[in-house]
Design a protein around this nucleic acid. Structure first.
Lengths: 252, 252
DNA sequence: CACAACCAAAGTGCATGCAAGCTGGATGCC
DNA sequence: GGCATCCAGCTTGCATGCACTTTGGTTGTG
């Protein structure tokens, strides 16, 4: 039962994982929007490490699908397509059904208290920024996964939840997290009660409505497929002078 | 429509991904057993690259759960516990149910032909080494995942399938892959017929029986928790001189 | 003879340096 | 004026070098 120092499953060294955690959080709080550039030296300078470490961290995040690495190009925060977002949610639903199935009726009193405390925090954050709400809502699900004591499940649920988070910045309108809090409370109650089928259904519908609230329509306004976006404008290109391309300003 | 050169989603550069692929394959073919040491210099020397690249590759594989990285220690091929193996299979079942749900009745003729050809290859490999059989059986599932055209699903199914493969070397007896081939054929037939529920059930039971054939008993004879393994012998330690510790020979 | 401290070899942790590739603006040509 | 070309800079790709940690054998001591 040797106390495993810092290394979970992946997360090689300390400095690398610190940078990973920081970037992950920045991404899910939308401080770093999809498409934001992540040059190695800037990261290294900012975190007080060399490019080698920054590079390694970017590699890890790329493996998680949070950043995109292109050869000889600056790494950018990933920009999932609408379809990928929908797929991510479908996977997440299945994984989290597994989580609650394992947890139903098996939670200790202190665990239930912990969950309730977390939802209270979500409640308090309702007036604050969207970023905090989204992060807390995601962390609720990750907290659940942790309670399964299954490292693999924790890893996959975390990863896919972060990815879903990422899509929220892309396709979601603000203030779509409001009602999720009640659904979280309902989940806790059902978990405590211990009805497997019921709680799996609850989770399923909860995530499904989160997805539906988020992925309002398959119109990736800011999505990556700008060729398709520009298709409607293609006619006018030949006719008149084109308005200045609406190149999104990525950096303030 | 620039042809994306080699980079899929993760897999930063070429050299790194080459090493990753080679190691992955070596691991699932059991050329590298769980616990096998993977020193950075040896890898670098073997693949003709510097430690930097070998290190990066190890980082990626660690992110996939195939190798374990411990600070200041030589990286080793991962040694999942029995419980982790069971969890991996549970996750895999859910993910692959998703795969066949998306695929049921939507496969083209050429895709079905491709699947049949693969199973034929599995059949031919039946006389050969276990390693080849296991690899082909795993690749059948990954091939299915690819046909969903969902990069995320491909990634997760591949990862978890490799992890399951890894556990096969740990807990499975040889020749447990025999009957899987028929189940693969049944899956293809059901997919072609297009009955979603039926095919999901088939996949569920197929993977469940693979898991049951593989994870024969929760007795990790070669598992990592050697403290538990030695527990029964602890009594004798005090009484008589101990026989030479059965330290498993990891390297030929 | 058993045990503890010590030390050299091996291996990782990380930074730096140099070569190669991409980006974007300036230059020259039509 | 419009367009292709070229060049400078920035950024990544990768190897090497040094410091630190672990390891396992050796030596000294009770």
């Amino acid at each position: 039962m040797a106390a495993r120092p810092t290394s979970k499953t992946s997360e090689s060294s300390d400095k690398v994982s610190v940078i990973c955690r920081a970037l992950r959080r920045a991404i899910i709080e939308q401080a770093l929007e999809p498409g934001a550039k992540l040059p190695e030296d800037s990261l290294g300078e900012r975190f007080g490490v060399s490019r080698t470490i920054a590079r390694h961290a970017l590699g890890q995040l790329a493996a998680e699908g949070l950043v995109e690495l292109r050869r000889n190009r600056i790494a950018v925060v990933a920009t999932p397509s609408w379809q990928e977002a929908r797929d991510a949610f479908d996977i997440r639903i299945q994984l989290e059904r597994l989580v609650v199935r394992q947890l139903a009726g098996k939670l200790t009193k202190s665990q239930i208290a912990e969950l309730n405390a977390h939802v209270d925090a979500e409640d308090r954050a309702r007036g604050g920024t969207d970023a905090a709400s989204i992060r807390l809502a995601t962390e609720f699900h990750i907290l659940l996964a942790h309670m399964t004591n299954s490292p693999i499940l924790v890893r996959y649920v975390s990863e896919v939840a972060y990815r879903c988070c990422l899509t929220l910045s892309l396709y979601s309108r603000p203030h779509s997290t409001e009602c999720a809090i009640n659904e979280h409370r309902a989940l806790i109650a059902a978990l405590a009660k211990g009805d497997e089928a019921k709680v799996m259904d609850l989770m399923h519908h909860h995530l499904d409505s989160v997805a539906n609230r988020a992925l309002v329509a398959p119109t990736p306004q800011r999505g990556r497929d700008l060729l398709d976006i520009l298709a409607p404008y293609a006619d006018e290109v030949t006719s008149d002078r084109v308005v200045k391309l609406p190149k999104v300003a990525r950096r303030g």
